[in-house]
Design a protein around this nucleic acid. Sequence first.
RNA 1: GGUGCUAUCGUCUAGUGGCCUAGGACAACGGCCUCUCACGCCGUAAACCCCGGUUCGAGUCCGGGUAGCACUACCA
Length: 513
Amino acid sequence: MERRVRVRFAPSPTGALHIGGVRTALYNYLFARQHGGDMLLRIEDTDSTRFVPGAEEYILEALEWLGIGIDEGLRMQNGEIEAVGSHGPYRQSERREIYHQYVKQLLDSGHAYIAFDTPEELEAKRAQIPNFQYDARTRMMMRNSLTMAAEDVKALMDKGEKYVVRFKVEPDEDVHVHDLIRGEVVINSNILDDKVLYKSADDLPTYHLANIVDDHLMEVSHVIRGEEWLPSAPLHVLLYRAFGWSDTMPEFAHLPLLLKPDGNGKLSKRDGDRLGFPVFPLEFHNQKDGTVSSGYRESGYLPEAVINFLALLGWHGTGDQELYTMEELIKEFSLDRVSKSGAKFDFEKGKWFNHQYLQLRSNEELAEMFLPTLKANGIEAPDMKMVATVVGLTKDRVNFVPELWEQTNFFFVAPTEYDEKSLKKRWKEDSPKHMTELLEVLESAPSWDAETLDGIVMPWIEKMEYGVGIVMNAFRICLVGAARGPHIWAITDVLGKEETLKRVKVALTKLGA
RNA sequence: GGUGCUAUCGUCUAGUGGCCUAGGACAACGGCCUCUCACGCCGUAAACCCCGGUUCGAGUCCGGGUAGCACUACCA
C-alpha cells in the first residue's frame, strides 16, 4: 500500500523566514516534486504573543521568489495570498474548534488530564526542586485532575479557573522513532515530561498537539523538518498512538542544522549583521520591533543561486556536480544523501554560486536588473542597448549585479580624477607626447570600430617603437581614470569617437601636456 | 545537570571493508593568458578527533573516551 506523498512546510509567522527554514522548505519541495506528491503550506500561529504582522506575507513571497511552489494551503499568487485545497483552514489560529474536539478525545480516553498549576507555581517548583519535571514521578503532587476529586475539578472549571491540558506520558517505555536520515532513535519515556497540549493563556493548542492533529487531518506522509525537533519526536510518536493513528503516522526525517560560519552554534539573525551577509531571503521590515533585516534578493542574489547553494548545504549528489537547476535537483535529490551533521554556513561559496548564475543570464536581463543601481548613482534614463553592452563586457568579473557599477561607472561618467597608483605605474614621462600623437592618429581613422582602430594604432606604435603597453595603458588612464577595465577597443567602441577624443584631451590638460 | 544527535582539508563535502599513496568544490597561494584590472585555465598547500577491538585488511564495522550541537517553556 503506497501512500500518496504529501509533505508540508509549516512556519511560524514570528518574523522573517530564516535561511535554514528556506532550506527545509526546499527539501520538502524537492521531495514532493520528485515523488509526484503535494507540497503543503500551513501557518503555525498558535503563539499569539509572538505573532509579527507581515510575517506570513513575507514567508509566502519569499517562497514565490525562490520558485518553491505550493500545491496546497497558503500561497502567494501575484501579490495576493490565496488558500487552495480541501483540508483547510491552513492557519492554525483558525482551527480552534478542531483542536477542541481532539483534546476532548484525549481527555476522554485518559491520555491527557487537566492541570491547574499556574506558571508561578511551576516556577516555584522548579526553583525548589532541582531538575524538576512534570511527569509520572511528580504529577501526583501537583494540582490536576489526577490528584483532585472530579467534583472539585468541575467546580474549579465552572469558577473559570485557568487550566491547561497535559499529555499523560506512561513511564518506563522505550519509544522508537524511525528517522529516514538517522535510522532508529530510541528514547525512554522517563525523560519525557507531561507536555502541555492546550494552553490556558490564549485558548490554543501548543505546537505538539496542533502539529499532530493537522498532519493527520491533512494526510501528511512525510515530516521533513529541522533537527531541533528530534528530541520531541518521541512525544509525537506517542501522540499518534494515543489518537489511534499509528498506522498512518508519517515518516520522519530530521535535517541537520545550519551553523554559524565562525565559532559555534546555530546560525542566527545576528550572525548576518555581524559578518555582513543576509540570513533572510528578502529584506524584512519588522513592524513589531522596528528592525530591518537585509535579504538575498536585495543584495543582488539570483533565486536560482540561492536554491543551488542551499541545496548543497547538507545534501550532495552522487558525483562531483555542484551546479544544479531546480529540475536537476528534483531528479537527483534523495533523503538518504542528506548529511547527518550540521553545516557551517559558508557565505563565500554563496558568492561563487551567484557568479556562476549571473553568467547564464542575458545581458539585456542583467541590464534591466542593473537599473536601480544606475539610478542610485544618478544615471536616470540610460540607453538600454548601451547598458546591455557594457554589462556584457563586465559581468564575468562580478558576483552581484550592484557590483557592476564599480566595473562600468566610467562608461557613464567621464573620469574627473585619476587613480594615483595607476598614474605612478602607467603614466610615463613621454605619455603626454604619446597621447598628443595618438589623438592625431585617431582623428584620421576612416571608421570607428575595433578592427580599424587596432589596424592603424598598432602599426603606428610599432613604427614609432613606443611600446604597446606604454601607449595603451596611458590611453586607458585617459579613458577610464585608472588601470582597469575591459579591452581598450571595447571601451572606445562604446564611448564613440567624440567622447574618446574628448577624454584624451581632458586628460592632457589635467595631467600636463 | 539530564537526554539525544553528530564527528574526513579553514569551509561544504565524496567515501557504505580492499578501487584511498583519501576525490571534488569554495577560499588561500603560485603560474599561464595579457595594453590594465578581472574572468578563465593550469598547478601547490591543506583532512580521516583519540584509544581499544573485530578482520588477512578500517576513513568505512563495534566499544569506550573526547568534543561540538540540539533539546530540556502554557515558543515553535
